[in-house]
Design a protein around this nucleic acid. Structure first.
Lengths: 351, 351
DNA sequence: CATACATGCGCCAGTTATTGC
DNA sequence: CGCAATAACTGGCGCATGTAT
C-alpha cells in the first residue's frame, strides 16, 4: 500500500508555480563569492570549520561578508554532496507521555550539541503509522535512527541493520540489539524490596504494555524479588494496562475488585500510578494507610502531587543523551555495547 | 601527498572518511532505470504522482520494479531541485510540558498527512539556544515555521517574514502576527465567573509566564470579570510563576502567606495547579473546602488526579492541526487570518 | 505519443593553475 | 628554477523538468 511516491496531498499544489509568497531565495555560496570577488569554492573553504589552503586574511574577509549577507549553508545540498545528512530520526510512541518527552529532550539536546538535527515521529504504537513514518525518515536519508518504541516481536532494528542504517534502541530493550535503557529488572526489584520492607504481603502490579521490555522486566524483577522472599504474586494480580492516567485508573479498579485485595500496588509508570491513586480514592480507600502505591520513572509532577508519589527514578535525560551518543558511535563505526542505567528508589508519601 | 610540515599539526584532521559501518548506498533512480531498461528520467516521471507522457504499462512496470528494489526518493535531492523542502520547523519552549507536547502532536499529525516532515526544537525559553536552533532550521531550508514560544517583545516572526519565510504562531499570540490560539481572555473570564458563582471574593492568580500572551490574557480576562462584578484582584495576589509543578508549588506558597489569604486560586496552567494543590495540602489546608483551585488546559491527568481538577479546557490537538494547516495556507500564498479557539469550563472537584 | 537527453539546484573536495620567494 | 602557499577550476551527489528525437 505504501507507494514510493507521495500521492495524496490535500489541496497542496506541487506543480503550480508557487505564487503569493515572497519566497526570497536564500543567499548562496555563489552570491557571497561574487561580492567577495573570489571563486565560490574558495568561499566554501573559507567557511569550513578549519579552512585549509586559504589565506587567513581571505578567510576573515569572506566570513565577515558571509555573515553580513546572511549566508547560511544549505544543509540539504551539503548532505547530497557528502552523502551524510546530519539528520537523526527518532521513533517514539507518544511525546505526550512526559517520560518519552524527557527522553527525547535528552536526545535532542545531545544531537544539537553534536551538530545534528533530529526528526521525531509519534507512532502511537500503530504498525501502519509507524511504517509510514519510518519510510519518511528513510527518504530523508537520516544518518541513523533511535527507536524508542520497540516491541518484543519487532524486527525493525534488524531490518535497518540490513539496510546498513545505524540504529539504537532507547528506553525499551531487545536482546539482540544495541540499546540504552534503565535496568528495569533491578528497578522492579527495588520496588518490591521496598514494599516487602514495609510489610506488604498481598501486592498487585499495573504492568503497562507487556509487549514492551519495560512492562515485562519491571514486573519480572518485582515478582522475582517477591518470590525469593517466599511470596508469590499471582497472575491475577498482574494487570496489563495501556498508557496514561486513565489506563491506570481502570487497571487499579480491577485490582481493587479482586477477592484478595492487594495492600500495595506497583505501577510500572508514574502516570498510571496517578490514575491508580484516583481509583483508590474513588473507592473510598486511603492511599498508603489502606493501599500503598509505588510508581516508576519519577516524572516531574510525582514530587508535587497532593500526596507525593514514591517511585523508582529512571535517568531519562541521561538515557536520551547516552542513546544519541551511542548512535553517533555506531555511525562512526566505533564498537558499541548496550548500556543499562541504574534505577533509584525515591521514597515519598504513598508507601 | 604527505606534507612534512603538517606532521606537527597532524591532530587537525581535514578529511577523515570515518567509515566502519556498511553504509550501503540507497537505491537511486539510476539503478531502477538500469533494471527497467529505460532512461532514469522516465523512472522519475513514472514515479511521480500523476505520470504524464508515459505509457501506462511502463508506469506499472517501473513502479513494481521500484518497490521491489526498495527505491525511496531522496527527499533532500528532490528538495534541492524543486526549491521546496517539505520540511516544517517548530519552535517550542519545552516538549516536556504535556500541553506543548499535545500541541506538537497535532502539528505533527497534520503535517504528516499533508506529506511534510517536521523538525522540532526545544528552546527552553533561552534566547541563545533559540537563536541557534532557528539557525539550524533555516539551514535546513524549512518551508515554514511554527512558533509556539513567542514572547511579547519578540520580533522573530517579523524577521522571518522579511526573509520571506512563512510563519504562524501557535498557543501564544502577538497582535501583529498570524496565530492560532485559545481565546485566553474568554478562558480567564470563564474561570472567574465560575469562582464568582461559587461565592469567592478573595482570589489569587498563579499567572505563569507573564511575558507570554497566555499568562497575560488569562490573568487579564480573569481580573476583568472580577472587576466587572465589583471585586478587585490586587496586584499582590497575582504571582508570576515559572513552569511546571514545582513553580506552581512555590507560587502557591506565596499566595498562602498573604495577609488576606485567597479562598480560591486560578492557575494559568494545569501543571502549576497540581503543584499548588501540593502546597495547599502541605499548609494543612483542605482543597476546595479551604481553598478552591481551577487550572487551565485540561491535560490528561487533570481528570484522574486524586482530587479531579476543575479547569478550562483548551483544544490543544486541534490547535496544532489548525496552525499547521494555516501555515500551509501561507506557504501557498492563500490569505490567512488569526484564529481563536473556544475554551470550555470543566467543573470537577477542586471548586 | 512515448521516451531519451540535458540542464542545474547548492555544495564539497580532488585537481590544476597562479603566485611569491 | 624549485617549492610552498594560495586560489581557481572541475566533477558530480540525486532528482525534476523542459526540450529534442
Amino acid at each position: 500500500m505504501v507507494k514510493p511516491q507521495d500521492e495524496v496531498r490535500s489541496g497542496l499544489e506541487v506543480t503550480s508555480p508557487e505564487r503569493g509568497v515572497p519566497a526570497q531565495k536564500p543567499v548562496t555560496l555563489a552570491m557571497v563569492a561574487k561580492h567577495a570577488q573570489v571563486h565560490y569554492s574558495t568561499v566554501s573553504r573559507a567557511l569550513s570549520p578549519n579552512p585549509t589552503g586559504i589565506g587567513a586574511d581571505t578567510v576573515k574577509r569572506v566570513r565577515e561578508l558571509a555573515t553580513l549577507l546572511g549566508y547560511r549553508r544549505d544543509e540539504g545540498a551539503a548532505a547530497l554532496k557528502r552523502g551524510r545528512s546530519r539528520l537523526i530520526g527518532v521513533l517514539v510512541p507518544r511525546l505526550t507521555d512526559v517520560a518519552l518527552a524527557t527522553l527525547y529532550a535528552g536526545i535532542d539536546d545531545a544531537a544539537s550539541l553534536a551538530g545534528y538535527d533530529t526528526v521525531v515521529a509519534n507512532t502511537w504504537d500503530e504498525a501502519e503509522r509507524r511504517r509510514s513514518r519510518l519510510d519518511s525518515l528513510l527518504s530523508r536519508r537520516v544518518d541513523g535512527i533511535i527507536l524508542a518504541d520497540s516491541h518484543i516481536a519487532d524486527h525493525t532494528a534488524h531490518e535497518l541493520s540490513k539496510l546498513g542504517l545505524p540504529c539504537v534502541l532507547a528506553m525499551r530493550r531487545l536482546p539482540s540489539e544495541v540499546s540504552v535503557s534503565t535496568d528495569d529488572l533491578a528497578g522492579g526489584r527495588l520496588a518490591a524490596e521496598h514494599l516487602i520492607s514495609r510489610g506488604h504481603t498481598q501486592v498487585g502490579i499495573i504492568a503497562g504494555d507487556i509487549t514492551a521490555s519495560t512492562g515485562i522486566e519491571r514486573s519480572q524483577g518485582f515478582t522475582s524479588a517477591y518470590r525469593e522472599s517466599g511470596m508469590d504474586v499471582p497472575q491475577s494480580h498482574i494487570i496489563a494496562s495501556g498508557f496514561g492516567a486513565l489506563a491506570g485508573y481502570e487497571a487499579c479498579r480491577k485490582l481493587l475488585e479482586l477477592p484478595e485485595r492487594p495492600t500495595a500496588i506497583f505501577a510500572a509508570d508514574d502516570l498510571t500510578a496517578v490514575g491508580a491513586m484516583g481509583a483508590i480514592r474513588d473507592a473510598g480507600l486511603r492511599i498508603r494507610n489502606d493501599i500503598a502505591i509505588i510508581g516508576y520513572n519519577d516524572i516531574d509532577i510525582s514530587k508535587q502531587l497532593p500526596i507525593p508519589l514514591t517511585t523508582i527514578r529512571s535517568p531519562l535525560l541521561e538515557m536520551g543523551r547516552a542513546s544519541l551518543k551511542k548512535l553517533l558511535d555506531r555511525i562512526s563505526g566505533r564498537p558499541v555495547d548496550s548500556e543499562l542505567l541504574k534505577p533509584e528508589l525515591i521514597v515519598r508519601s504513598t508507601t
